[in-house]
Amino acid sequence: MNRSPYISEAPSVSSIMLKVLLALVPGIIAYVWVFGGGILVTITLATVTALLAEATMLKLRNRPVQPFLTDYSAVITAWLLALAIPPLAPWWLIVVGTLFAIVVAKQLYGGLGYNPFNPAMIGYAVLLISFPALMTKWPAALQLAQTKLGFADQIQFIFSGVLPQDVKLDAVTSATPLDYLKTQLTLKHDVASIREAPIFGALGGKGGEYIAMAYLLGGLYLWQQKIISWHLPTAFLGALALISGVFWVINPAHFASPLFHLFSGASMLCAFFIITDPVSGPTTPKGKLYFAAGVAVIAYLIRAYGGYPDGVAFAVIFMNICVPLLDMHTQPRVFGHEK
């Protein structure tokens, strides 16, 4: 029987996924530095929930548990979701979100390789729609907070919702830069004066911009390791810069600069870690360009005009729907064929 090739030189699915996790580490370190250690608790909760949910579903679906558990794709989903939701949200929020992502968005569609939507983004969208108040209550960066919560205080708050005696909730939370920008713009302030508020940094939000840069660093590592191709991040960041640039040039008083958009919200996480999910994304080079650009444009429009401060999750989910179409219409020219 002919079963060639007999040799292979492929990283295993596990090693690919582990590298993605590794690439998230700088972002997590920056996150801890900016918002405190609470995120580590959230990530741990998400990871445990994801693995348990994955194992249970695999069992129920009569599939081998071990190889699929050690492909680490569930862990990536867990980490991404944990990094996307507010770090001091109550413990059950991340558990519910992760459960939904793994059980519904991934396993019920057939598990690894078969999910048409990015599971983390589905989890995020479900939480945002169901618990909008919790999902928009972000802590202030530690550098800005009037009162700094210690690690133990953060843990206590996550699990019980109780703050130390002398601390008021308002003292530890703050609007996110995108959120703040949006509400201030509706109050007819212009961008320049809004950005003088202390929560803004040189590029995006104070603190947040460092996390974004750490994501960028991790993303470049993934690109260098050939885990992701240049197409997705470049097209996403390029399109986001372009569309925000056009609006900004037309009316700089009402629209924030491209740099602000690139380094705010989930932009960098999206560019390198979310839209690069291979399973729910397109496979052709051109399809990747259109996909990423589409996410950027929709996310920007939601930021500028929509009801939510950041639109990355909805943009990704919408573009996921378009993937089969994109793939079909962007087939590269086959050797020896006319286009």
């Binding site: 690894l112 390789g113 291979p278 052709t284 050797f335 020896g336």
Partner: peptide, 26 residues
């Protein structure tokens, strides 16, 4: 002997190396 096959994760590595420029995953 090759390890057991996993589902296709649509990583398109195969498409990147196909000398005929086909889409092996499709």
């Amino acid at each position: 002997p090759p390890p057991p096959a996993m589902p296709c994760i649509r990583c398109a590595r195969c498409a990147d190396v196909c000398p005929v420029n086909l889409q092996p995953q499709e």
